[in-house]
Nucleic acid binder design. Structure first.
Lengths: 245, 245
DNA sequence: TAGTGGTCTAGACCACGGA
DNA sequence: CCGTGGTCTAGACCACTAC
């Protein structure tokens, strides 16, 4: 068959064209996070290709964590809910290796005008409204992470301090449940910095303590940036773990 | 066909058994880094399976960066040489985004008895001989990385300060060229620390400056740890970049 | 032109999960 | 039991590389 009259990814392997079509269905919310997509046979029929070609497309999307295969059950849209309070994008782990629990304390949630720096990262116009959140996260009672989060107000209108503090799961699950925004991937830039007066209070540490600075841009479908974070980690008992290959 | 009489990975999909056989050939140095492995058809004949099954095995190994496919030419064993002086495992990048060049200055290379900590990470016996290397790396003339490296002496016998300073490519290329040891993957633990007196001299920074501490364990085939590193990065003009998905 | 990896197909059978 | 994804096969044809 031929899909080369389709507007998307015309001159490329069939499975790339199928991938683009599947991505379009994800991006348009035809299939919601956590929901099953049609079976491989159904999709093969819909797109008039063989099951093996659909399979290769789904394989690549599930390798990117956009879809999740479950043998005997079906293929599902990846979600930050249903992960049992896990933090998929959090690389912090205790030096001890013990499992740990993060306790959230949200401090502020304000709407204000974006400065040029945040606007640039969020690909919005300078001066557009953004939501700014502050929180502290504790590990076994010890304040360990101080974090500022910026979101475009247009997508997260109405987000309040009360709703944040009423939510016990990762905020990425909240974004999905209440704002139909699924985070697909993120990029982090990490530096070492010294605690200033404000942060030293939040983390109950002396001014000048070494802290890990973690700046994150998170993207939803279509590589659209929708969240900026600036975090400070106290790494005296924890570390940021990374695997290279 | 049936490979279930083979000793390796007996009760598993055929392509997993093929993967194990390919891995065994890599680990035994039957195919050396940079060299081509037999064609898919040859391997299919050798193992008496279909080409598609060999293909799936190779696909997974190349996804893990153990093999590299080159259309029209063949499939090659991954190597740290031929990468044009690139540092595959180095996550440091300038804030400016500009391309950069790292200049190596090796300071010391000693053979000594391992302490318990390093021996444990290298999975050798405490007191066994290890080689300890110290170096500084500069970006545009500015000392930016101070690094200590520990290697098991048994595998790297004869490594000297002179041979290190005569080598301009990544040390992982040297390990391959002179010690037949190819690094497959690595794990890093990152913290923020303060510069002590010794490091402040090496990096020409005030004592108490914030530094990124990066501890790495690198593994060769068979998940065998063969190199430990402890580095200190000056992140005032650089950052450690990480992608999450 | 020959040989390599890359794509696509059609069909068989297996393994798992749920009714 | 059926429907799902998972494995395996055999064969055709394409795209790229090198001689």
């Amino acid at each position: 068959m031929s899909l080369i009259t389709e507007p998307v990814a015309s001159f490329s392997p069939l499975y790339e064209q199928i991938k683009a079509l599947l991505l379009a269905s994800l991006q348009s919310s035809e299939w919601l996070p956590g929901a099953p997509i049609p079976s491989e046979m159904e999709l093969a029929a819909r797109y008039a290709v063989s099951q093996g070609t659909v399979r290769k497309a789904i394989d690549e999307l599930s390798a990117q964590n956009l879809l999740v295969r479950r043998q005997g059950k079906g293929t599902f849209v990846a979600t930050h809910q249903e992960e049992g309070g896990q933090y998929r994008f959090l690389s912090l782990e205790p030096d001890s290796g013990q499992p740990f629990h993060l306790k959230n304390q949200f401090l502020a949630c304000k709407t204000l005008q974006s400065d040029a720096y945040i606007a640039d990262l969020l690909e919005i116009n300078g001066g557009d409204l953004i939501i700014q959140i502050e929180r502290v996260q504790c590990i076994s009672g010890r304040p360990t992470v101080f974090e500022e989060i910026w979101l475009p107000e247009e997508l997260f209108r109405g987000l309040s301090l009360e709703s944040l503090n009423a939510w016990s799961d990762p905020v990425y699950a909240l974004y999905e449940a209440k704002y139909s925004t699924h985070m697909v991937r993120a990029e982090e830039k990490i530096k070492a910095v010294l605690a200033d007066a404000a942060i030293s209070i939040h983390l109950q540490l002396p001014v000048g303590s070494p802290l890990l600075s973690v700046e994150r841009v998170a993207f939803t479908y279509g590589d659209k940036p929708v969240e900026i974070r600036r975090a400070r980690y106290d790494t005296s008992e924890q570390h940021y773990g990374n695997k290279l290959n």
